[in-house]
Simulated scan of single mutants.
Amino acid sequence: MGPGVDAILCVVRTGGASRRLPKGFAPWPTLHWYFTWWHGDGSVERIHDGLFALWRYSFVRLGLRLVERRGAAGA
């Protein structure tokens, strides 16, 4: 499962297509299967929520102020 997570994070980080992953990762159909499986069972959402909580905590710990956007400008 570790290499699958690394590959998905690589795609997210670079914004590239999963079919264009560097050599050394599993074939893209395998990674796509993992992603759809994790998305279906809620794992992707839990990972996102956990990472967002860590990001938000780091802002609070550094004493930075979060500005939450509410809708489009001028709306």
Rank of each mutant, 00 (worst) to 15 (best):
A7L: 02
W28S: 09
P27G: 01
F35Y: 08
T14W: 15
G4D: 06
M1Q: 06
K23E: 15
F35A: 09
V12H: 07
R20N: 11
C10A: 06
V5P: 02
E68M: 13
T30H: 03
P22A: 08
W38C: 13
L31C: 02
L51K: 07
R46N: 04
R13N: 09
C10T: 15
L54R: 09
A7Y: 03
E45R: 09
S58Q: 04
T36Q: 14
D41T: 12
R65M: 12
A26G: 03
G15R: 08
G63S: 01
V11I: 12
R70K: 10
S18C: 13
S58G: 00
P27L: 02
G4H: 11
P27T: 00
R69Y: 09
S43C: 03
G50H: 05
G2R: 12
P3N: 15
R69H: 07
V11W: 03
W38M: 15
V11F: 03
R69M: 07
E68Y: 14
S43G: 00
R20P: 05
A73H: 11
V11D: 02
R20Q: 13
G63H: 01
W33F: 13
A53M: 09
G24R: 05
R56A: 14
R46D: 08
R69D: 05
R20I: 11
K23L: 13
V12W: 11
V67T: 02
G42Q: 02
R46I: 02
H39Y: 10
L66F: 03
R19M: 09
V11L: 04
G42S: 03
M1F: 12
V5Q: 14
W37V: 14
L31T: 04
V60W: 03
I47D: 01
L54S: 09
R69V: 06
H48M: 09
W37E: 15
Y34E: 00
R13W: 02
G15A: 10
V67K: 00
T36K: 10
G4Q: 10
D41V: 15
G40A: 11
E45D: 13
R19K: 08
T30S: 07
A73N: 04
L64M: 04
F35Q: 02
G4I: 01
L64P: 00
W38T: 04
R65Q: 15
A75E: 15
E68W: 15
E68A: 13
R19N: 06
R61S: 01
